[in-house]
Amino acid sequence: MTSNPITGASRPAIDRRFRLQWEAAQNAHVLLYPEGMIKLNSSAGEILQRCDGQATVADITANLELAFATTGLSNDVIAFIAMAVDKKWVAVLS
């Protein structure tokens, strides 16, 4: 499998083999897959819930910066998405 570098124009989506949801009992977002669960920390949850296959990485970054009243998240978001692609949690559509 070849993986293209993640850029601001990439459109990430949760891979079809995973389901993302908020679990009140865990107080966390989790990724569910056959007979298993990955509990996410809060920043991973915030990024992944914005990976809807429509928004670009640049959109997601801008949205996060607005939501948390901060700037300069771009490199962190790109690094996280690249890791999530590597783990096959996320597929990049373009």
Partner: peptide, 8 residues
């Protein structure tokens, strides 16, 4: 309600 999430 108890927090079960994986169902077999």
């Amino acid at each position: 309600e108890l927090g079960a999430v994986q169902l077999g």
